[in-house]
Design a protein around this nucleic acid. Structure first.
Lengths: 162, 162
DNA sequence: TACATTTGTGTAACTGGTTACATGAATGAT
DNA sequence: ATCATTCATGTAACCAGTTACACAAATGTA
């Protein structure tokens, strides 16, 4: 059964980035597949936006900062959510550049059902990380390291150290 | 300094998937930035293809299986690498469907320099995961869990269990 | 040998991110 | 009050993956 060999895993640290991407993509596409199978007309990356707007109305820039996602990425997501009737916007009264984004009636109606699916998904994450008690702490540590010095900065330093 | 708060981290398991994606994207774009800053005309996802073809010539399907990447994804990468003169192909003598992919002279000439950059990058991964001794084992465990049952299958089960 | 199936590759359309650039509104400094 | 700067949003072009479909070559089977 040599079939289980994994080129990326064999590479150890060299394959780390690709494996993280593979994991991320794997869950992403599987989530989309799940929604499709349940006839839900939502996308995986809408989840956190729903959670944010469920708490309070926000502007696009605020959302982009909360999620640490570029604002053009948020524009695309929000536009699609608007098109599907889950988000509506109204201009800010004091600053005409801003548009206040909020959930529609359709959202409020669907959210209880969506939450059931999201909870099932969180349970899945719980399952697959069950043997990795400290995975969130480790993720945190890696994020902290990268916030102290980006991959680029660190790699430049390492290159010239050689 | 409440600015350091991270909505995704606060969500714990709910934010796990998005944080993994954020990490993956962060490293990916920073790597591209690095290559650009060093005037290297290569893309981050070419790394493993170089490593594979450095060992032996392979077909597109073989590469796609090794990397566990869809074959259309490989087609795109390979075409770009061909266009940039790093890969050449010749038809298989016994099976005219297959094309054998191999590195060009340009590749062989550049690889020593590329390896220096890749090694600096691996050193960076080493740095940022230094406090996470068992990160590779944990990744392995998560991959194994998902290979036993996909995110979709597990989440369906969890949904109907509710 | 003829025909159905599998395999290798390619293309199209999609989601999901990025950086770079543009523009009009708000803010701040002189 | 004016002008430079910053801020909020939008658009374009790009990279990176997916699934679905197409098609010819190879293989297996009756």
């Amino acid at each position: 059964m040599n079939d289980m060999r994994d080129f990326l895993a064999d590479l150890e640290l060299t394959g780390f980035t690709s494996r993280v991407k593979r994991l991320s993509d794997d869950i992403l596409y599987s989530t989309r597949d799940y929604y499709k199978s349940q006839d839900l007309d939502i996308e995986p990356n809408w989840h956190l936006i729903f959670l944010l707007l469920e708490q309070k109305a926000m502007t696009l820039t605020e959302i982009s900062e909360e999620l640490r996602l570029s604002h053009p990425a948020c524009v695309k997501i929000i536009n699609k959510m608007k098109k599907m009737g889950y988000i509506q916007s109204e201009p800010d009264k004091t600053d005409s550049r801003k548009q206040i984004l909020e959930l529609t009636e359709k959202s409020l109606e669907m959210l209880p059902e969506f939450h059931k699916h999201w909870n099932a998904g969180i349970e899945t994450i719980h399952e697959i990380t069950a043997d990795c008690a400290e995975i969130l702490e480790q993720l945190q540590k890696i994020e902290e390291k990268l916030s102290q010095g980006s991959y680029k900065i660190r790699t430049l330093r390492n290159y010239y150290k050689q």
